[in-house]
């Protein structure tokens, strides 16, 4: 019945409908486990506050992680790559034209040699 919705990729197949059904079942199981949890607990006491080893909780705005700090490790580890790649994007129009014509010249050579 589901054959019509199965994507044939030549060597394999992919059935999104079955995947969604499985996903829904997993979600329902997760929901059931969540519903088994304790519903009644005192909401306006220390129990709902984060415990930071007894330190005062900082302002919400101060704990927000800004984008510039994300993937710092990745860019730091790839420094050798980025320090070469980023400066190529000079923003100078002449360089843009040079890259375009340079690639064209290179492809000319490749096609000329192959022919």
């Amino acid at each position: 019945m589901l054959d019509a919705y199965t994507l044939q990729t030549g060597t394999g197949f992919w059935d999104p409908v079955v995947w969604i059904v499985v996903f829904l079942v997993a979600f329902l199981i997760a929901l059931a486990i969540w519903l088994l949890g304790e519903k009644e607990y005192p909401r306006d006491t220390q129990a709902v506050k984060p415990f930071l080893s007894g330190n005062v909780e900082p302002e919400k705005a101060d704990v927000h992680m800004r984008a510039g700090n994300l993937y710092w490790g990745f860019t730091e580890a790839m420094k050798g790559y980025y320090s070469r790649l980023v400066p190529l994007h000079t923003g100078v129009l002449n360089d843009y034209v040079l890259w375009f014509l340079g690639v064209m010249a290179l492809v000319f050579v490749i096609v000329g040699v192959a022919a």
Partner: peptide, 8 residues
């Protein structure tokens, strides 16, 4: 995404 084969 749900009906890729139809589109293909």
């Amino acid at each position: 995404g749900v009906f890729p084969q139809e589109v293909v």
